[in-house]
Design a protein around this nucleic acid. Structure first.
Length: 511
RNA sequence: GGCGCGUUCGUCUAGCGGUUAGGACGCCGGCCUCUCACGCCGGUAACACGGGUUCGAUCCCCGUACGCGCUACCA
């Protein structure tokens, strides 16, 4: 009998603020976000900053900024309001202390006064007995310095003396913890494999295990969607829920994402964006933003890394809102995925090409202005962008690719000249120049007709004129269709450039 | 080592007992064509292995191998 979800869906993304957002974290955030939106639920951002030794200044602001760039904004969390706060775990210590009392009273947790040295000695003893993974568990806890063995007056004395202590979870012996993972199906663990996990550290902060259970419960989280690295911790969490007398949320553990060579995606060894070791890939989402990836393309790609819409659909390109309607946890894969930059790049081009031209114009204008590039008018820029956008992989390529639309070429491609500028080129170009100067209307059709008249007259292929003209007008050998290009440039500009080039360009020895 | 999870073209994947095992990226041809890009057409390439169950297994079960995760007073 499955209980019907009566509550609205509430999911959370709970990163530790390390200073950067990992590609894998982005996907976890995305799946949580999509799941929430799909079910009209709430997406909560919670900062798991209970490890004070890893505190990074400004990390959570940075995190929010990157998530926002990616189009993932929270309904609740730091900077988002919400009535379940505070959303920084470091600001919730009193809550954890209060809650953990319940666990102690229920006999599910206890004080432990052992020093690190004592614990190490205990582990060493176990290793000497041939135990591979020494644990602080049922087999040794009554030999240690903790409230299980000590009398209550001794415990009070230790605390009064200011002896450092932790609070540990008393994992029961011989229990099987079984649960249904939304992605993996039934998973079970034996309690005998688990040690008495520290719940409250000696600095008074909770560990992840306590904090995430308490917060998920108090924040009324209905579904936990997180990375597979947490799967092994689930039995601990289950026992904590049970001891509190709380229902555990549904869980879904996502497979991890790896480098092309199968290794873990790590920021180590990656110094520069353009110097990434073979087989590796940059895990930092910020790098992709800086490199100029379209946010929608990255999201599209990441979504597809481990999920697909199925149902015989062969759609690959999804806009963010389509992902929301299509997403389903049931279609998330079980197996790990490898990050493939090739496919991301392809998607980027597709997304870029699908952007409305006016949108791209708007994004381009500030940079053009800043670089003092005279783009004449919005309408002129629009025409250029419209003509060129399907040829760009990144928006940043626009200026280098289209500079000649805004100023006469200063350089002419050397290889291009050798290949295309023949002994008769100047003559043909000038004739073409003369022909178009007579044109009443300067549009694609009439320009092409003019050019064909010249080529017919001299009985040469159109390419014999087209290539030199392109070179003369743009300085390069690649670009959009010539006639479209000329029309946009305008008659006057074209004639000026043709005359200049006809005079200046050298003819290399005949091929 | 123990425990857990996983394994379909190089990569992302479809498949949910009977298929010429489909698509996408990449790669290789070709078409279009004034170059590049787009687009179109075609090709390349996969069920890790071994046992079962079954009339029949990519699909269900069990092993093996391999990969990954966990095994902290880190998350």
């Amino acid at each position: 009998m499955r209980k019907e979800p009566v509550l609205t869906v509430r999911v959370r993304f709970a990163p530790s603020p390390t200073g950067f957002v990992h590609i894998g974290s982005l996907r976890t955030a995305l799946y949580n976000y999509l799941f929430a939106k799909k079910h009209n639920g709430r997406f909560v951002l919670r900062i798991e900053d209970t490890d004070r030794s890893r505190f990074v200044e400004g990390a959570s602001e940075n995190l929010v900024r990157i998530l926002e760039w990616a189009g993932i904004s929270a309904d609740e969390g730091p900077g988002y309001n919400g009535t379940y706060g505070p959303y920084f775990q470091s600001q919730r210590t009193s809550i954890y202390k209060e809650q953990v009392e319940k666990l102690i009273n229920a006999g599910a947790a206890y004080y432990a006064f052992d020093t690190p040295q004592e614990i190490e000695q205990m582990r060493q003893r176990q290793r000497n007995q041939g135990v591979h993974t020494p644990k602080y568990d049922y087999s040794v806890r009554d030999q240690m310095r903790n409230s299980l063995r000590l009398s209550s007056s001794e415990v009070e004395e230790e605390i009064a003396n200011g002896t450092a202590f932790v609070i540990r979870l008393k994992i029961p012996k011989d229990r099987i913890f079984r649960f249904q993972d939304r992605i993996r199906g039934e998973v079970e663990f034996s309690s005998d494999e688990i040690d008495d996990q520290v719940l409250i550290k000696s600095d008074g902060f909770p560990t992840y295990h306590l904090a995430n259970v308490v917060d998920d419960h108090l924040m009324e989280i209905t579904h936990i969607i997180r990375g597979e690295e947490w799967l092994s911790s689930v039995p601990k969490h289950l026992f904590i829920y049970e001891s509190f007398g709380w229902d555990a949320p549904e869980m879904a553990h996502l497979p991890l994402i790896f480098n092309p060579d199968g290794s873990k995606m790590s920021k180590r060894n990656i110094q520069s964006l353009d110097d990434i070791p073979a087989g590796k890939v940059d895990p930092d989402v910020e790098s992709y933003r800086r490199k100029g990836y379209e946010n929608s393309a990255l999201i599209n790609y990441i979504a597809l890394l481990g999920w697909n819409p199925g149902k015989g659909t062969e759609q690959e390109i999804f806009m963010p809102d389509e992902l929301v309607t299509e997403f389903s946890l049931d279609r998330v894969n079980k197996s790990r995925a490898i990050f493939d930059l090739n496919k991301l790049n392809w998607l980027n081009k597709e997304h870029l090409g699908r952007q409305p031209t006016e949108e791209l114009v708007k994004r381009l204008e500030p940079e053009l202005t800043q670089k003092k590039i005279d783009y004449k008018s919005d309408q002129y820029l629009y025409q250029v962008v419209d003509l060129v956008k399907s040829r760009l992989a990144f928006l940043q390529e626009f200026i280098p690719y289209s500079h000649y639309f805004f100023q006469d070429p200063e350089h002419f491609d050397e290889k291009g000249i050798r290949k295309r500028w023949k002994s008769d080129s100047a003559k043909l170009v000038l004739e073409f120049c003369q022909e178009i100067s007579k044109l009443e209307t300067f549009d694609v059709k009439s320009i092409e007709e003019a050019l064909r008249r010249i080529s017919d007259h001299h009985d040469v292929g159109a390419g014999r004129i087209i290539h030199p003209v392109r070179l003369a007008v743009t300085g390069v050998t690649v670009g959009p269709g010539l006639f479209e290009l000329l029309q946009i440039l305008g008659k006057e500009t074209v004639i000026r450039r043709l005359k200049y080039a006809a005079e200046k360009l050298p003819v290399y020895k005949q091929q």
